[in-house]
Amino acid sequence: MQVLTNLFARLRPNSVRTTAKDRMRSMLTYDRLELPAGRLECLEEELMAVVSRYFELDKSTTQFDLQQYDRRASLIANFPLLRSKC
């Protein structure tokens, strides 16, 4: 029975293991930067407002995220542009 459980577990994409890993990764990103919840969203809004003064944005596909590499975080922002505003 354990054999079958293990086999199925490997096929299950959203395993407890992946959930733990994902939660862990985002938790530590915030911990290391001492970044309070909501702060990143606040920055995203402000940045978007600035960029929107110059460009029309495709707001449905913007990407705004923190990524970790070697214990260092980078801010990855991707604002697809439709056209210039002036």
């Binding site: 490997r10 299950r12 395993s15 293991r17």
Partner: peptide, 9 residues
């Protein structure tokens, strides 16, 4: 069983 993080994780 994918119930726990691995060493690699």
């Amino acid at each position: 069983a994918n119930d726990m993080m691995s060493v690699e994780d």
